[in-house]
Structure formats: structure tokens, C-alpha cells
Computed example of a mutant assay.
Amino acid sequence: MQANAPIGVIDSGVGGLTVAKEIMRLLPHEKLIYIGDNARCPYGPRPQAEVRKYTWQMARALMGKNIKLLVIACNTATAATLDSLQKQLPIPVIGVIFPGARAAMKASHDSQIAVLGTEGTVKSGAYEHALKSLKSSCQITQLACPKFVPLVESDEYEGEFARNMVRETLAPLKAEAFDTVILGCTHYPLLQRFIEKEVGPSVTVLSSAAETAKDVENHLRFQHMLAETGHKPVHKFYTSGSMAIFRSIIEKWLAIEHPDVRQIKFL
């Protein structure tokens, strides 16, 4: 495997672009190949067996492109598939749940943490397990936000409609005590400013993206697999859904002009 081989990033849709953005910022010489399974998004309400099947399809597609490391930039897919991918693939595989939990424990003053996630992530208990492994006495409040992913996928995450949906969804948190919120879905950072307004200025709202990017850097550095300095990467983006919406979000969120966007189909 060559050091200049690409990093693979997979997600149920556009949410993983928040992780890709942090990897690109931290490791500007690395080439990314991204697959968003927009056609079958959201993964949150799906059975775990189905999520595992779809995640493996994306992983196999990227293995065929000779990636050197795989990032599961989807919390639902991480909860369902991380262990099997790590055991069976010959390359490092990094998920987003433990980095998110680690970032929250660093940020929290009172170990009172709220987790916003998909139905699948919340039901899996993966964040609760990760947080408790770091501090067994931490207090955890979890809230499923099933409307958030379709909102982001439809490119409607910036207006008044999005603001009102966030307010309505987070209403149950008004009665809970917490000082830190984990955005336990990689789509949710695109709604972060609305979420921050609802929980108030005394609460830290964070995603797993930056911590996941640090894990990617650490793995590659340890294995002496960082891309050469001066290497100018051209990233590739694949979607199983609408190329127009996918391209629009890439252009806005990653500030890439004329991104290389391609269609991918799974049998």
C-alpha cells in the first residue's frame, strides 16, 4: 500500500461530509474518496442487518479503489458495523462514536451529557457504552431526532423551516440537565447553529468530526502512511442518489468548485 493511496469515507448520505471537511483541513495532502448512499438514506430507522449490508457494500466498493484507511462517517453504520469491518478488512477502520464520546468527556464539566442521534444509534446504546467506558459515573440523556437527516438531505437545513423543526424536536430536552451535547449523527452539524440557540450559550455543542480526523492522522502517522508533503489531492465523491443536490451541498459545505461527483449503484 502506497502512502499516497486515498482515504475512504462512507456515510448514509451527505452527513459524512462534515467529517471529510475536518480530515481535509487537518490533512490537506490526503486524497479522499467519499461514498454517500443518499438513495437509501436515512439509515437510522432501518434494521441493523440492513445497515450492515449497505455499509459493507460501500466498504467493498472502496476497497476496490485501493484505499489505505476507511472512515465510517456515520454513527448508525458505526454502531452496526464497526466491529465486523475492523476484524475482516486488511486496513485500519475508524468509526465516529468513540471519538465523539471522547470529545464530549473532554468538554464536559459535570459529566452530564446529552446525545442527539438517529433512532438506530440511540437504540444501539453505542454512545452510552462509549461514554460509560470513559467515566462510569457520567449522566447521559439521549434523544432520537428522526426528522433531522431528511431535512439535511433535502438541502433545506438553513431556513426558518429548519429552525422550527429543531425547536420542536429538542423540546423534550428542556426538562433535562446537561452541559454538553454530542451531535451523534454526522448530518447534525449542518443544523448546529439552530441547535446551539435552543440549548443556550452555557451548553457546549460538539460533533465527532474533529476528533475523528485526529484519529485518522494518528493512525496514518503511526503506520508511516501519511501522504507526501506537496501532494495535491483531487477528491472524488460518489452518490447513489441525486447528483445535483449532492454537488450543491459539497460546494457549499466544503467550498470546492466543480467537485468530481459521480454516480454509484449497488445491486
Rank of each mutant, 00 (worst) to 15 (best):
P172V: 02
S133N: 15
L17C: 01
K252L: 04
L254A: 14
Q88H: 12
F266A: 00
T121W: 11
W253R: 13
Y127M: 01
E168M: 02
T55I: 03
H129S: 12
S202E: 14
I35S: 09
I10V: 13
L134W: 00
S111V: 00
A101F: 08
L226G: 06
E22V: 00
A107C: 10
G36Q: 10
V203Q: 09
L85N: 14
E128Y: 00
H187S: 08
A227C: 07
K232G: 00
G120D: 07
A177F: 09
C41M: 12
A59P: 07
M243F: 05
G95T: 08
L206V: 01
K214L: 12
E153D: 10
A49D: 13
T180G: 10
L69H: 03
L254H: 14
I91P: 06
S111N: 13
I7Y: 09
V122K: 05
Q88W: 04
T55R: 02
A244E: 15
K87E: 15
E119L: 04
E198G: 06
V149W: 12
E30D: 10
A59Q: 11
L85P: 14
A101V: 02
A227I: 05
F237C: 02
E22A: 05
L69E: 11
A244W: 03
S242L: 06
K31G: 00
A255K: 13
E251S: 01
V234Q: 15
S242W: 04
M105E: 05
V71A: 08
F194N: 10
